[in-house]
Amino acid sequence: MTIWIEVAVKTLALLLMIPLAALALGYSELKIMAHMQSRVGPMEAGKFHGWAQLIADGLKFIQKEDVIPEAADRSVFALAPVLSLISAFLVFAVVPFGSGQRFWFFNLDIGLFYALAVSAISVLGVLMAGWSSANKYSLMGGLRAAAQLMAYELPLVLAAVAVVIQAGTMSLVGIVEAQANFSILGIPVPYVVPQFAGFVIFVIASVAELSRTPFDMPMAESELITGPLTEYTGFRFLFFFMAEYAGMFALSAIAATIYLGGYWLPGVPDNIAPAVGPVALVAKTGLIAFFLIWIRSTYPRLREDQLQKFAWKVLIPISLVNILVTSIAVVFVSDVQG
């Protein structure tokens, strides 16, 4: 009986987390970018610094007419936003928010592998949207998104492989625990220190996977008019919007978990660790998300061929070297210790 209550509560929490994460990140992006751009951002909705702006936006989207172009492939057109959202949803399922079974939905042995695999589904949604819209701009955007996914999924996975080699497990909980036991010269440090190159590659590849500036060629509002999303309105657009921010949160959370130690903080006594865990993870996730927002407000976007070149000629070779160095180091260290 209790197992069912637990499953119900966790599922509900998971369902709530998607819109909450999207709202929180969306709002922070509005405000952070506004302040970086010498303006104040939303100030009216909800009185206090426009906190309710995105809720108002969401309500507006829901009220809008649901327009599907006449030439569109209706079923694919309708399925695409759902698929995008589901992908973000599935990633959340394996993120551990604290130590102990209460804080994760799901501790898979192949957690990291699973997370990276399902996060790639979102691009399928974008490709479907681009294809089914019967719009040339959307089609071009969808194809660009697909090409971009192929190029950047590889460095993303290769960077994570080095972490897996170092931790000796693919379970996200296992990786956090491995980081808790890891130290250099007696100082406990998360994997970002030994795996710095991997961390940078992982974050860059996540930006590309999320199609955010400077890798937002598939969306490129000034040339493709937001590409695959051109024909979407109302709640379908809202789905994409939520998927974008939830996806950003999910990938940031994965990066925080495998590189920044996730819910683990050094020196926290065991009795309060369960309470600190989720806060620590959200804070670390927020740090990475802030960095993504910062990049967005600083850089122009790369051209499609340039970002391909960057992935194949720079990121992938570096991540391969990173795997090599990590493997040698792991064998060497275990030899010394063993």
Partner: peptide, 13 residues
Amino acid sequence: YPLEVGAMTPMFF
């Protein structure tokens, strides 16, 4: 121009 090549911030400055 920056907006067209994808940079948003210079516009506000």
